[in-house]
């Protein structure tokens, strides 16, 4: 048996491992406590209070079972995939805000012309576009993507613009005196120097877009996580509603994690980017 060799090593390794687990799990104590409390409330208190009310708050155990079923039947993955696809399409379109933001930050004339347009459109919440966009595009992907795009484009644009405007003037001067022309300067100095702020804009934009996505799907879609929870509401399937909500949260978190990873990869020199 290999147990003999491993057994001798165990007393040495175990305390360190335990300490490590302990450190990792410690911040989750309150969360775990709340989940347990939630379960107890659902199990013991609510049914005694009123059977109708009990339906309105599904228990964690029930949610786990519903989530398992929704995943097994492919329903949850199907809605999640539709939502993610809309987010991705809108993001690809909203990425055009990066070159526009650079141009606005770099050339005064472009800034002069575009800034008033941006300032008029920006304060209109993406959700206020929903009625008009439904008339324009009907229910479905294009309408959803349009709303998500509107949620993403302004944070990306304004962060890029600000990033370019805040580029250290001496970096530009240094590059110019070392012989950099306009194109090289924009690509190799301005873009690079503004990149941390641009990445921040992408993160904020993806977050805003995800929020706008759910709202758009609530009213204007027949698939997606927003549709899923609204549809379940009409059937009083609160368990599906909450599972959908959790899926929206987890997916949003995953997107942000992915972008932080991208930031670390894109900005190896900038330590603070990964941590924020």
């Amino acid at each position: 048996m290999s147990g003999a060799a491993a057994g001798t090593a165990v007393p040495v390794i175990l305390p360190a491992r335990r300490a490590n687990w302990y450190r990792r799990l410690k911040p989750l104590v309150l969360l775990a406590g709340l989940v347990v409390l939630w379960q107890l409330v659902c199990l013991l208190w609510l049914p005694r209070l009123d059977r109708q009310i009990a339906i309105l708050l599904p228990s964690p155990v029930q949610l786990a079972s519903t989530a398992g079923k929704l995943i097994a039947t492919g329903e949850l993955p199907h809605h999640l995939a539709d939502s993610l696809r809309r987010e991705a399409v809108a993001f690809a379109l909203a990425l055009w805000a990066v070159p526009l933001g650079i141009a606005m930050g770099w050339w005064r004339g472009i800034h002069q012309q575009f800034y008033p347009v941006v300032e008029i459109l920006r304060p209109i919440p993406p959700l206020a576009w929903i009625p008009l966009s439904i008339l324009w595009f009907g229910l479905g992907d294009v309408q959803n993507e349009f709303i998500i795009f509107l949620g993403m484009v302004f944070p990306i644009l304004l962060n890029t613009l600000e990033g370019v405007r805040q580029v250290d003037r001496n970096l530009i001067r240094a590059a110019r005196s070392l012989g950099a022309g306009e194109a090289v300067l924009l690509r190799r100095v301005v873009l690079k120097a503004a990149l941390p702020q641009i990445v921040t804009g992408l993160r904020v934009g993806l977050g805003f877009g995800w929020m706008a996505l759910v709202a758009a799907e609530l009213v204007g879609a027949n698939s997606g996580l927003g549709f899923l929870i609204n549809d379940a509401r009409s059937l009083l399937r609160t368990d599906i509603v909450v599972v959908g909500m959790l899926a929206i949260g987890v997916a949003g978190l995953t997107i942000d994690f992915a972008l932080r990873g991208l930031a670390r990869w894109l900005l190896p020199w900038s330590q603070q980017q990964g941590g924020r």
Partner: peptide
């Protein structure tokens, strides 16, 4: 302030 390219 040196003005070195921090990404390089």
């Amino acid at each position: 302030d040196y003005a070195l390219f921090p990404w390089a």
